[in-house]
Amino acid sequence: MSSPAPLTLDEQEKHRVLNRLRRLEGQVRGLHKMVDEDRPCQDILTLLSGIRSALDATGEVIFEQYLLSCAANEGEPLPTREIVKTARLLR
């Protein structure tokens, strides 16, 4: 059994993904601080919703790259079952 292909992003896309992850990291720190400071639930949930959306969008970029590049590196089309299995990781 071969090991999974590594993520290969072009430099511009890699830069965008890393920037998104840095922003997410800052937002999670902010969320931690909001909880620690007993901020209003609505404010906390609003930030949590934004974090979830940003994380989902980042996952979609990586999943798309998986379909376009990582799977193609194997030399054979991926079976539908493998694509569904990988897509479920985004849930």
Rank of each mutant, 00 (worst) to 15 (best):
E37N: 13
G59W: 15
R91M: 11
R91F: 01
M34Q: 10
E11I: 08
Y66T: 04
S69V: 14
R88A: 04
N19V: 14
L45N: 14
E11Q: 11
R20E: 03
A72Y: 08
L7I: 04
R29G: 09
A72K: 12
R88Y: 12
D36N: 02
G50P: 09
A71E: 05
L18P: 04
E37T: 10
L21Y: 08
E74Q: 12
C41S: 01
L7Y: 07
S49L: 06
A54L: 10
S3Y: 14
E82I: 07
V17L: 06
D36S: 05
C41G: 00
P77N: 07
E37P: 10
R39Q: 09
E11Y: 10
S49D: 10
S3M: 15
M34G: 00
E13G: 02
G26T: 15
R16M: 13
L68W: 08
L24H: 15
L78S: 07
L18Q: 13
V84W: 06
Q65Y: 07
V17Q: 05
Q27H: 13
G50K: 04
P79R: 00
Q12F: 12
E64N: 02
V35T: 09
D38V: 00
T8M: 11
C70A: 14
R52S: 15
A71T: 05
D36V: 01
G59V: 08
R81K: 04
